[in-house]
Design a protein around this nucleic acid. Structure first.
Length: 556
DNA sequence: ACTTCATGTCCCC
DNA sequence: TGGGGACCCTGAAG
């Protein structure tokens, strides 16, 4: 593996391989894949427009090629070029704007946000709007600040466990605030799972709290046994986790279903438990305030976003809970003084190019803002006390909206003292040794640098839902119907001695069988995708050693 | 082992 | 303002 190293090596363009199935390339074992780069030469010649393709002399085990004279693009249906997946590599349609940065004139493969650095995801140029304070800071203070930021630790080898107890896709995740190994997950169907990932059989599924998408879950900080949940069924519930008995706090559809034009869905719930407040918003632009103790709605709903547009996120500032951040489908984020919402004017408006999937204050000081927008950009405001007219940074990152996916949200690492590390799943796929995988990205939001990408051959679906543990080095991922827990490989040497990790990327593998055995009681047989199956056949089942297989680290 | 279908939400005309 | 088209998906059914 060290030999092939660069994960972003040139794409292999396989033109009409005789073994035409999409899984053909992934079914080769890894040794063969090492030689796969050779094939790209032939493919690139083809891209340059030569119609007469002489069959490439098949080096041993390399896929054979045939001539395809009637190329038809799967994307735009026009002749003369091809687009779509060729094996595990996606070839863009040249008629389309770049799938990553959305600008025309180039394809994703040649997007400057992808290939300038080996990591492929780079910040948009910082806008030169420095204030006097910034210059003073740059000159007076910055030289004295250690170049090495307070460390955020990204382990370089991970292992994971995967469970599938949800029957629909996972839409929200939340770690228990005090019990270190308890994770809660909500799904599209309204079910809420509780899972102790240290005691693998301890898990519970509550299925009668909500009837559709669980959008948010929040623990009552004064009573960890209580969980507030909001749902697209239009209700907020407060559930006693011991008994599973929910108390209905609010139902915004008291008259039942009268068609989609009137059905209200609740999003973006947050709590300000200093004041006993629960805040939630709906898909028509309104904010609701609830007294969590008396379960009484406080006043009339307040319009905080464009009328008729969905409010998708709310966040109370951790340092000053009266400061409220909202975001919505009207392409705006807004900062509010929760004590003076009535006059309808926000303290600041954060404009975005598209729908804003999420907006969060930084987890400790609350002085930064991190947003995820459907224009494929993560935006960072370094200080809410500075000029908020434009973000301090725009980081191009692939997280498109799609019907089968929970909207992506970049989430802060609550353990990072520098408040700069964030995690977010990636939509666009990458060819990892012949398998198209969608990594989970760790991004240093202070620079836009991609710090690490987490992938595993067990996980072929996109992972839009991610949460970092408040204290431990643990990442929880919701991907389709699966929930994963990633943690440092425990056999690892002293992690402090590992080299600078900024340019490493992570491949982690745990034995599929071992995870399956843990959960055989559910007779889950969907651990293996078809691709995985074929891969293992070729491997002679090598990857199914009893214990977690050692992860691989590859320098970029 | 392949193809088709359903599904949701947002964009754009 | 509303309806049709887009979607590097996912899972199931035919």
């Amino acid at each position: 593996m060290p030999g092939s190293s660069n994960p972003r090596r040139r794409p292999r363009v396989i033109v009409d391989s005789l073994e035409d199935s999409p899984s053909s390339s992934s079914s080769e074992d890894e040794v063969e894949e090492e030689q796969g780069g050779d094939a790209s030469e032939a493919g690139e010649m083809n891209l340059s427009g030569r119609k007469e393709e002489h069959p490439v002399a098949p080096s041993k085990k390399a896929p054979a090629f045939t001539i395809n004279l009637k190329k038809v693009c799967k994307v735009c249906k026009e002749k003369g070029h091809q687009a779509g997946f060729q094996g595990a590599t996606y070839i863009d349609c040249p008629k389309k704007p770049c799938f990553l940065c959305k600008k025309p004139g180039h394809t994703t493969m040649s997007c400057p946000h992808r290939v300038v650095l080996e990591h492929g995801i780079v910040p948009a140029p910082r806008r030169n709007k420095l204030t006097l304070l910034d210059y003073v800071f740059e000159r007076e203070f910055k030289p004295h600040i250690s170049k090495i930021k307070p460390k955020f630790v990204v382990p370089d080898k991970l292992e994971h466990v995967l469970v599938r107890f949800h029957s629909r896709r996972v839409t929200s995740l939340e770690f228990h605030p005090t019990l270190s190994s308890v994770l809660l997950s909500g799904d599209k169907k309204g079910q809420i799972g509780i899972w102790n990932y240290d005691k693998l059989h301890e898990r519970t599924l509550y299925d009668s709290i909500h009837s559709c998408i669980v959008n948010n879950m929040k623990f009552d900080t004064r009573n960890n046994g209580l969980l507030y949940t909001s749902s697209s069924d239009g209700t907020i519930s407060c559930t006693d986790l011991e008994t599973g008995i929910p108390v209905l706090l609010m139902d915004v559809n008291p008259n039942g279903w009268n068609g989609p034009a009137t059905w209200r869905m609740l999003y973006g719930m947050d709590t300000n438990l200093d004041k006993g407040l629960v805040l939630v918003a709906d898909n028509f632009g309104y904010l609701y305030l609830l007294d969590g103790r008396t379960k009484v709605k406080m006043g009339e709903p307040i319009l905080i976003h464009k009328k008729g547009s969905k409010v998708v996120g709310l966040h109370c500032n951790p340092a000053q809970p009266d400061l409220l951040l909202s975001c919505g489908n009207d392409h705006f984020g807004h900062i509010w003084d929760a004590r003076r919402l009535d006059n309808g004017s926000s303290l600041a408006s954060l404009a975005h190019g598209r729908v804003v999937n999420s907006a969060y204050f930084s987890p400790h000081s609350g002085s930064k803002i991190l947003t995820t927008s459907q224009d494929n950009r993560i935006r960072v405001w370094d200080s809410i006390f500075g000029n908020l007219d434009s973000p301090s940074r725009e980081i191009v990152h692939s997280h498109d909206f799609n019907r089968h996916l929970t909207p992506f949200r970049a989430e802060w690492d609550p353990k990072d003292p520098s408040e700069s590390l964030a995690v977010i799943g990636r939509y666009i796929s990458e060819n990892f040794n012949g398998v198209a995988l969608h990594p989970i990205d760790f991004i240093d939001t202070s620079t836009g640098q991609l710090v690490a990408e987490v992938v595993d051959t067990d996980l072929t679906t996109i992972s839009p839902v991610n949460k970092l543990h408040p204290r431990d080095d643990i990442l929880a991922t919701g991907s389709s119907r699966s929930v994963l827990i990633w943690r440092p490989e425990r056999k690892d040497e002293d992690r402090e001695q590992l080299p600078e990790r900024m340019k490493e990327f992570i491949i982690c593998n745990s034995g599929k069988k071992s995870s399956k055995r843990m959960f055989d009681d559910d007779s889950d047989d969907d651990f293996s995708s078809k691709r995985k199956n074929s891969q293992q056949k070729k491997n002679g089942g090598k990857s199914n050693s009893a214990g977690p297989r050692k992860g691989k680290t590859v320098k970029a």
